[in-house]
């Protein structure tokens, strides 16, 4: 699989797919998309990078261990629920703020934080499985 063309294009492809996964994640509240599917896209981007350039390169690029990424996502998801404690409503209630940033109204919410948590859980979980499988094959 390590042809020159593939190795040359894989980083661009990976970057593009990760960017697209974030786009899918952010549009997910009202349109098709969301944390889960976004996470899958990002994980497959990492898998492609791993096939092209080796697992070690992916681990270097990720910086954190995939399981740690997954755990941070779980942490973030629970934290998204805990915001409701300060608002005095039922756990996991969606809370919204609409600040104006550079003249544009941006909708920020606890569901978004939760969704980012889901995204990280999926990226971390699937990437750790995929990397483990790719590593095993090369042994």
């Amino acid at each position: 699989m390590r042809t020159v063309i593939f190795r040359f294009t894989a980083p661009y492809l990976t970057a593009l797919m990760v960017l697209f996964s974030i786009f899918v994640l952010l549009r997910g509240h009202n349109d098709p998309g969301g944390g889960f599917i976004g996470g899958l896209i990002a994980a497959s981007a990492l898998a492609i990078y791993g096939i092209a350039c080796g697992v070690a390169a992916v681990r270097r690029a990720l910086w954190f261990h995939p399981m740690a990424i997954s755990a941070s996502g779980l942490f973030l998801a629970v934290v998204a629920g805990i915001f409701s404690v300060f608002a005095g409503t039922g756990f996991m209630t969606g809370l919204w703020v609409f600040p104006k940033i550079f003249g544009t109204e941006v909708a920020l919410s606890t569901p978004l934080i939760f969704d980012i948590g889901v995204y990280l859980v999926v990226v971390g979980g699937i990437a750790s499985i995929a990397l483990a499988l790719e590593e095993r094959e090369s042994d």
Partner: peptide, 9 residues
């Protein structure tokens, strides 16, 4: 879940 996630990190 919070402690489990923190410990996993």
């Amino acid at each position: 879940l919070l402690f489990g996630a923190a410990l996993l990190m």
